[in-house]
Amino acid sequence: MTTPIPDGDFRFIALDVETSCADSASICQIGLACVGTLGSIQSYTTLVDPQLPFAPFNVELHGIGADTVCGAPTFTQIWPQLLPLLTRHPLVQHSRFDEKAIAAACKMHGLASPRLQWSNSVTIARKAWPELKGSGGHGLANLKEVLGLVFKHHDAGEDARAAALVTLQAEQKMGRSFAEITGHRHGFQLSFQF
């Protein structure tokens, strides 16, 4: 269920969340894929009690329900544990949903919203594989097929790992580093907006 939070320095961290309902603050799972200097990936996944209802559509999509998160930490409990790691690294999300969900959950729980350094693996994929536009697009489902990725879609840990793999393959395809593709540098300062 919950794995230890990775420790150390990484080139970037891919982050994905699943939500319990249409409210983007309803995070019920967080997954991280921490990419090391040689492309190794350390994964982390935790269930989260969203303290909001579960909609049947969401439960059918990811298989997480109220019974699944019984005893899981709330966002208020887990977020401060993740912040030291996340604020030290550039983050990758596939689309902007995850960034919006984190901001909404922080707001709902009265937590300061950190200024995290986000990149979008959809944008990265568009640069690396422009030919996919109109041919299935740059969503994870199509990239899974085109790039031969193996992962379980709509599991936060698996989707985070997939976003990391898309980014790593894009680096290889373009012959450029993550920092060159995104303009993000390692070691930025922590700052908060209220």
Rank of each mutant, 00 (worst) to 15 (best):
L52D: 01
T37I: 11
I102E: 03
P80W: 09
V150K: 08
A33Y: 07
L38V: 12
D67H: 09
S119N: 13
G175E: 04
Q193P: 10
G31Y: 00
V17K: 05
C21R: 14
V69W: 00
C28H: 10
D98T: 02
A163Y: 04
D67K: 06
N120M: 10
G39N: 05
I27D: 00
V17H: 01
F194K: 12
L168S: 04
G39A: 09
A22S: 14
K133S: 14
M1F: 06
P53V: 01
R176M: 13
T167Y: 02
G8F: 05
P130D: 05
T68K: 09
L83N: 10
L47W: 00
H184F: 12
H62A: 07
G71V: 00
K144I: 06
R176Y: 05
S26V: 09
H89K: 10
G65F: 07
D159M: 07
G110Y: 07
V59H: 08
C28G: 01
R161Q: 09
L140W: 01
T2R: 02
Q42I: 01
H154F: 05
H62S: 11
S24N: 00
A160S: 06
G187H: 11
F194L: 12
P114T: 08
L83G: 03
E18N: 08
L61N: 08
D98N: 06
V48K: 01
T87R: 08
P114V: 09
P84W: 00
N142V: 06
L82E: 00
N58Q: 08
I41Y: 13
V150A: 15
A170F: 10
Q172L: 03
C106D: 15
T74S: 15
G136V: 07
M108Y: 01
A112E: 14
G139Q: 08
G136N: 09
R176I: 03
L15R: 03
H153W: 11
L143F: 14
S121K: 13
F54G: 07
A112F: 15
T123Y: 02
L86K: 11
K107H: 12
G8N: 12
L116W: 07
Q189V: 12
G134R: 07
I64D: 02
R11A: 09
T37S: 11
R185A: 15
P90M: 03
S191R: 10
W79D: 03
V150C: 04
L61A: 09
V92K: 03
E145G: 09
T167L: 04
I64Y: 04
V48H: 01
G110V: 11
F178S: 01
P6E: 04
Q189A: 12
L15M: 13
A55N: 03
T68P: 00
D49F: 04
V48F: 02
F57M: 04
A55D: 14
D159E: 15
L86M: 12
Q81K: 14
A22T: 10
L82S: 02
L82C: 09
L85V: 13
E180S: 11
R185W: 08
A72R: 05
F57I: 06
H186P: 03
K144C: 09
A66E: 08
A125V: 14
